[in-house]
Nucleic acid binder design. Structure first.
Lengths: 229, 229
DNA sequence: CCGGATCCCCAGGGATACTG
DNA sequence: CAGTATCCCTGGGGATCCGG
């Protein structure tokens, strides 16, 4: 294990989770819960299988994850976060929030996408502004992957997957969907950005935040950044 | 620039600050303020100068830092955090807090140490429980490096450096000093762990927290972690 | 199909020396 | 002081193979 050898908590933390892919691996376990090797590989497009294996070993040695052989319905080993691992979530959220600033960049269209990656941002972007209204459901289909949103009693539920008859369906590129839900793309221009919106569009007014999530205020970044090749 | 190529804010963030040394470099600018090249090299013991140069270029391209030629008193270029860079601080703190759990490990004695690395932890560990008392000063000397603590009106000030006649002086290994201030090492055992405490020891009762900092509650980690070679 | 292990190769990073 | 230049080595990407 390569270490910085510094008396500094940050350096110690980076000794453990600073290697390439490591924090993304933790992200998978946070967003998906206990995972099989294959689930992780699928959630980390581009990782070499030997690296995934190595990272899992390291994280286990450092007490961040634990491997457990699951009973028959699964019948294979599952990787869990330990209590220590779960304590990484605040750091994960802080870094993710910071990364939102960067996503403004050119939306490279060859980017990999997984439905569950949207769940964090969606929680930050949505709210139930009419808690007394009846339960409502929204089916998102981002880059072909389904995400299911449930609005009920002031609470927003987000998870990958489908439901049958949703009150509202939004289909298209992830960035376009987020742009619509953020209010940056008016419904009138949904077509123009390749969005397919069907159903009770009035539901949008219920779930879209009127005031941005406090932690997302930094989206209004004034400073301009330049791009290199 | 090597990128994960994922539609995910965390992945984007790691594209920018995920490389080796990068986040520690940001730490230096957060803790020390604007730095010269040499200041950074000194705050990052072990880094190769070419790597430092490369990282600075990358961070500048990505808008995290800015280089500015300072007027005569300094007469050289200084590296500043941009607004975007400053927004990394919450993530830095979250990771640092997580790292505190790991520092319990064997205190390797060949670790590098810099005084300003203590400032974050000290802010978390200290408080002024008697705001009406007169201003008081504590001089720490950790691993030979001086840290100056000022207690006044409910506020704690921490910065590297010295003051002449301090009300209390504590000298010794950083871990021992932190242990004492955390209350894990009673004053009676200060000698046994190589601490040299002189002056108004009653001041300790003023600055040591009776109730741990909320974010540090996770120090009471029950789970046991195993060690590899 | 799952959970890796093995091999090859290149790029990123470490160490040191050198320069404007 | 603020980097560049160079050399070398290890970590990581990519593919393939293997036991359960």
């Amino acid at each position: 294990m390569r270490t910085y050898g510094q008396w500094c908590a940050l350096a110690k933390a980076l000794d453990v989770i600073g290697d390439r892919w490591t924090l993304l691996l933790v992200r998978e376990l946070v967003l998906q819960g206990p995972c099989r090797f294959t689930d992780l590989r699928n959630g980390l497009p581009g990782i070499a299988s030997n690296l995934l294996s190595t990272r899992l070993k390291e994280l286990e040695e450092n007490g961040v994850i634990r491997r457990e052989s699951a009973p028959p319905p699964v019948a294979t080993t599952l990787f869990h976060l330990t209590a220590l691992g779960h304590r990484l979530e605040p750091a994960l959220q802080a870094l993710t929030l910071w990364g939102v600033n960067l996503k403004t960049e050119i939306g490279a269209d060859d980017e990999a996408f997984r439905a569950h990656w949207m769940t964090y941002p969606l929680h930050w972007v949505l709210e139930d502004s009419r808690p007394r209204d009846a339960l409502a459901t929204i089916q998102l289909v981002a880059a072909g992957e389904p995400v299911f949103v449930e609005v009920d009693g002031g609470h927003i539920g987000v998870r990958p997957g489908q439901t049958q008859p949703a009150d509202l369906t939004i289909e298209g590129h992830p960035d376009a969907i987020m742009g619509l839900l953020l209010g940056r793309i008016p419904i009138s221009q949904a077509d123009a950005v390749g969005l397919d919106v069907t159903g009770r569009t009035a539901l949008l007014r219920r779930v879209m935040r009127t005031t941005p999530h406090p932690a997302l205020a930094n989206l209004l970044l004034t400073e301009r950044r330049q791009r290199s090749s």
